[in-house]
C-alpha cells in the first residue's frame, strides 16, 4: 500500500521517533511535579479548609492515574505507538504516590492512632481493599529493575507483574467504596480500569480463536 493513503501509520511512526529521543528521566520528573505542587499548596495554605483530606485525595488520585496510565501503554502498542520504555517509570511513580497516600493516611489522617488503624485493617472493606492494592504493588516495585528481570526470567517476571491488574482494580474499588452515595469521579476510574483489563482479556481470547469466527 502506498504510504500516502496511510497517513496514520506515519504519524504514529514519527511519534515513536519522538518518544525514542525522550529520556525516561523526563517521566520521573513529570511524575514528581504534581507531588511538589501538593507540597507547595500545603505549605502556602492553598488546599482549602481541610488540607489533610485534600492531600490524601490528591495523592490517591495521582496514584490511580499513573496506574491507569501504565495500563494504557500496552493497548497503545496494539495501534503501533510504542511507549514501553516508559512503563517502568510510570509504574514506579504510581507506587510512589500510593505509598505517599498511605503515609498521609497513617500520619496526617489517623494521627498515628495505631490501634484504630489496626481495627480498620480487619474491619473496614475499603481499608482492606486499599491495603491489598498497595501490598500487590510492593513486589512490583522491588522487582522493577533489570537485575530482577534477569534473575526471575522474562516470563516469570511478566507473570508477576500481572499483579498490576490487582493493584489498579483494588485502588479503583477502594475509591468507590469509601465515598458516600455514588459520585461520578470514582466510578470513572473504576470504569477505566475495567475497560483496560477487559480489552486485554478480549485480546487474549481473540488470540486463541480462529480469525474467521
Amino acid at each position: 500500500m502506498p504510504a500516502k493513503t496511510c497517513p496514520r501509520i506515519s504519524e504514529v511512526e514519527s511519534l515513536n521517533q519522538l518518544f525514542r529521543r525522550l529520556p525516561t528521566w523526563a517521566v520521573y520528573l513529570a511524575g514528581v511535579l504534581p507531588f511538589l505542587w501538593i507540597v507547595w499548596l500545603a505549605v502556602t495554605g492553598g488546599l482549602g479548609a481541610d488540607p489533610v483530606k485534600a492531600i490524601e485525595l490528591r495523592l490517591g488520585e495521582l496514584g490511580l492515574q499513573f496506574l491507569i496510565g501504565g495500563l494504557v501503554i500496552t493497548p497503545l502498542r496494539w495501534f503501533g505507538l510504542n511507549l514501553m520504555k516508559f512503563r517502568r517509570a510510570v509504574g514506579l511513580v504510581a507506587f510512589f504516590y500510593i505509598a505517599m497516600h498511605l503515609s498521609a493516611w497513617v500520619v496526617l489522617d489517623m494521627g498515628l492512632r495505631w490501634s484504630e488503624m489496626a481495627n480498620d485493617l480487619v474491619k473496614r472493606w475499603y481499608i482492606i481493599i486499599g491495603m491489598a492494592g498497595f501490598a500487590a504493588m510492593i513486589p512490583l516495585a522491588v522487582t522493577s529493575n533489570n537485575a530482577s528481570v534477569k534473575r526471575l526470567g522474562a516470563a516469570a517476571w511478566r507473570r508477576l507483574h500481572k499483579l498490576t491488574y490487582v493493584a489498579v482494580l483494588a485502588g479503583a474499588v477502594h475509591y468507590v467504596v469509601l465515598v458516600k452515595a455514588w459520585p461520578v469521579e470514582p466510578l470513572l476510574y473504576l470504569g477505566a480500569a475495567i475497560l483496560l483489563l477487559a480489552a486485554r482479556a478480549w485480546k487474549a481470547r481473540a488470540r486463541f480463536l480462529p480469525v474467521s469466527a
Binding site: A49, V52, V107, G111, R113, E116, D120, K123, R124, Y126
Partner: peptide
Amino acid sequence: DHPRWSQASERRVGAGLFAGR
C-alpha cells in the same frame, strides 16, 4: 461505627496538618 468506617475519633478541621485526631 458507621459500617464502613469508625466513629471513635474525628479530625477537627483547621487544627493543622499534623494535629491528628
